[in-house]
Every structure is written in structure tokens, then in C-alpha cells.
Design a protein around this nucleic acid. Sequence first.
DNA 1: TATTTATTTCTATGATAATGGAAACATGGA
DNA 2: TCCATGTTTCCATTATCATAGAAATAAATA
Lengths: 109, 109
Amino acid sequence: MEINIAIKALAALAHETRLTIFRMLVQAGESGVPAGHLAKELGIPNATLSFHLKELTHAELVIARQESRFIYYSANFATMNALMGYLTENCCAGTPCGMVEVCCDEKNS
Amino acid sequence: MEINIAIKALAALAHETRLTIFRMLVQAGESGVPAGHLAKELGIPNATLSFHLKELTHAELVIARQESRFIYYSANFATMNALMGYLTENCCAGTPCGMVEVCCDEKNS
DNA sequence: TATTTATTTCTATGATAATGGAAACATGGA
DNA sequence: TCCATGTTTCCATTATCATAGAAATAAATA
């Protein structure tokens, strides 16, 4: 992962509305959630939601999929994992240290 | 982890200089690196570095430790792991999915 | 105490992001 | 084609962040 991509992803997540959206989508899994459902759940105007979804999409953290009139948004697990790998890269200069397991290998996304 | 803490951490990392600093400290491990060494390595004025280190410290992503005239900064692995756990929490609604291992359990920090 | 070295705070300037109403744009059904 | 529904773009206002020179602080040594 390149630093500018990581920064874009981190900046996209560093916002209450967007972080909440992302976590909802992570929990929703592959199938995703339509935009309108997110707006209702979050209680924000469509214009505001659309702005934030665009930010997340641009950062490749979410994927949009049109299905009839609805647009389903889902988490991009590949980007999420690449980001976490980037943050922990070469941790402790190779010293053996404890490991934590996190979810969703890119094989599943 | 609370959302506001996660946002503060993500915002702190969403900046080229700060992300670079953080990754240097992750790789340096427990012992850390003195501020002046970071400024030289990054080629930025002390004032600018200090501003960014303050942001990282405030977000509890780094820990400062005074040792004679030097201030050693090191990564806060506990916060890093809490953040990653927060992002992946209840991923895929409990559906079994691949796992990736990332570094540095809080037991070691 | 005076000096050198390491680091931080102060400050002003310039740059970037967030919000939501209104209008526009698609899509599917009558 | 006309209407209802779902979603996005436009825009202006407001708020927040980044930068780095200069001055201040703090610790070690002469």
C-alpha cells in the first residue's frame, strides 16, 4: 500500500458519520446496505450522506453496486486489511511479539 | 474503544508526516526514538515536528519518555490494536471469514 | 552562572473540509 | 409519457487544521 492511499483511507475514516457508516457496512458484510437505509438509520440529510459516501468510495473503503433503483454500499475488506497491514508493517523491527487476529482476509472480499 | 477516541486516532494518522512518524516508531519498537532524530530524518523544522508529535500524543498513539535531555517517543501498541479491533468489530455479522494476523498484542506494550 | 543543546509554545497566515437546502438526474411502474 | 422514489451535484457559509519563524523553556556541562 502506498502512503497516499493510506492517508486517504485514514482521513475518510476520521469522521464520526463516515466511521459509523463504515462499521455498519463491515458488520453488514458482502451484501451491503442501500444508501437510503443508511440515511434513515443515521438521521442525516441525503445530501450529507451522499457527500460522505463519496469520500469513502473515493478512498476505496466502500464499494457501490447498483441494483434496480437502489445503490447498495458495502465495505471493501481488501482495502481495510491492506491499511492495517500498512500500519503494523515490520512491527518491532522483527522482534517476536504477540499477535492479534482481525477479520476478513482479502480472499473473502 | 469509544468512537471519539477512534476518530482522534484516525485523524492523527491521516497525515503524511504523522503517519510516517508513527510507522517509524512502530518499527523502532519499545525503546523509541528521540524527537531530534525524527526531525533530522524527516527534514522538517522542530516546531513542525513538535506540533505533529503533540497531535499523536494527544491521540494516545505515541508515548513520550524523558531521558536526560532527550525525549524519546515510542508507539502505543495498545491504542493501535484497540483501533484495529474497533474497525473490524463484529465483522460480517459473525459469518465465519478469513483472519489476518497483525502485530503486537497489548500484553507486550 | 553562563552556555550549549533539545524541545516546546506562541502566533499569524494560508489552505482544506463539513453542512444541508434546492435543484438535477436516474430508474421503474402506471 | 408522466409521476414517484432514490440518489447525487451545486453552492455558499462556517469551522478547523498545517506551517514555520521567533521566542521561551528545560536540562546538562563548563
